[in-house]
């Protein structure tokens, strides 16, 4: 029984981390209708920047964190200006492929700048685990979970109650209409990419705190995909529920199915979930519109 409770608790925490990563997808998707496949590389970019400042240059964390966040924001802005803003109104194919191209381009650049070897990531959150009764949880993930929930509600409030946020929401409803209402779609897209990049920097800190960092850190974006799809790609608070569901499913599969089947099912659970979600309910649990059907 205690294993079950432990699995569920840690599943929820992992799920909240996925939700944090997925939040980057959602913010960018809402503003520009672009599904950013390069989100994982944004996380790796922020992480390497952090490593370069805190470990390589031996600067304290209170300098490293702002530098990382500013660097990530600039990166998001530059990506939007250089690539995405030129393709507004192009076909879905171009939009999908440009971010796939960016994924590969960024990976190449990261290797050229920093190299591909595995290295240590600074300890952002204390390493001591949180123990409640018999449940043992990673402190980084617990703090990360709280950040995710606060951020989700904060962003949700921002999108629904502030002038800028409402403009972004209008853009995500319909770019043409937003444009005719005098909203600058360009500025909204840039802002969304900056927010998306900042979220990926936060996700990098939560995910990698005190762990080792290499190019495979980008894989978490693929694991977070089903969370974004399950929530429906437009809902931010829905990500919390979707994240918890996916995380628990994966954690339980890891604990109960893997020893029984003798193979690593847990690692493909996200992709099986993607297939199921797309085939059964493509608009997710909290999505706005039904996906165009034939």
């Amino acid at each position: 029984m205690i294993e079950f409770v432990n699995s569920v608790a840690n599943g929820v925490l992992i799920g909240l981390l996925y939700a944090l990563v997925a939040m980057g997808f959602v913010v960018i998707y809402r503003a520009s209708k672009v599904f950013n496949f390069a989100q994982g590389e944004l996380i790796v970019f922020s992480a390497f920047l952090m490593w370069a400042v805190v470990i390589d240059r031996q600067l304290p964390l209170w300098i490293g964190l702002p530098v990382t966040f500013i660097g990530a924001a600039i990166c998001g802005y530059v990506l939007d200006r250089l690539f995405l803003s030129r393709l507004v109104g192009e076909s879905v194919f171009s939009m999908v492929m440009i971010t796939v191209g960016l994924l590969i381009l960024m990976r190449g650049l990261i290797i050229i700048i920093w190299g591909a070897e595995t290295r240590a990531f600074p300890v952002v959150f204390p390493l001591r685990p949180v123990i409640v009764g018999d449940i043992i949880m990673s402190q980084a993930l617990v703090i990360g979970g709280v950040i995710t929930i606060v951020l989700a509600f904060g962003l949700s409030w921002f999108f629904n109650h502030t002038r800028t946020g409402l403009a972004l929401t209008a853009v995500s409803e319909d770019q043409q209409v937003a444009l005719s209402l005098g909203i600058s779609v360009r500025k909204s897209m840039s802002l969304a990419w900056i927010i998306g990049a900042l979220i990926s920097a936060i996700a990098a800190c939560v995910y990698l705190s005190g762990r080792s960092l290499n190019l495979h850190a980008a894989d978490i974006a693929f694991a977070a995909l089903p969370v974004a799809l399950l929530a429906g790609l437009e809902s931010i608070t829905g990500l919390i529920v979707a994240g918890a569901l996916v995380g628990v499913a994966q954690s339980l599969a890891q604990y109960y199915l893997d020893p029984w089947l003798g193979l690593n099912i847990a690692s493909v659970v996200p992709f099986i979930l993607i297939l199921l979600i797309l085939l059964i309910r493509p608009s997710g649990l909290f999505g706005w519109k039904t996906i165009e059907r034939v």
Binding site: F83, L87, M97, I98, V100, L105, I112
Partner: peptide, 17 residues
């Protein structure tokens, strides 16, 4: 490996734009 990535990513983004 890095060069391959740069060539591939560069080609895709360049041609799309």
């Amino acid at each position: 490996f890095a060069g391959m990535n740069l060539v591939l990513g560069g080609l895709i983004t360049f041609f799309l734009i």
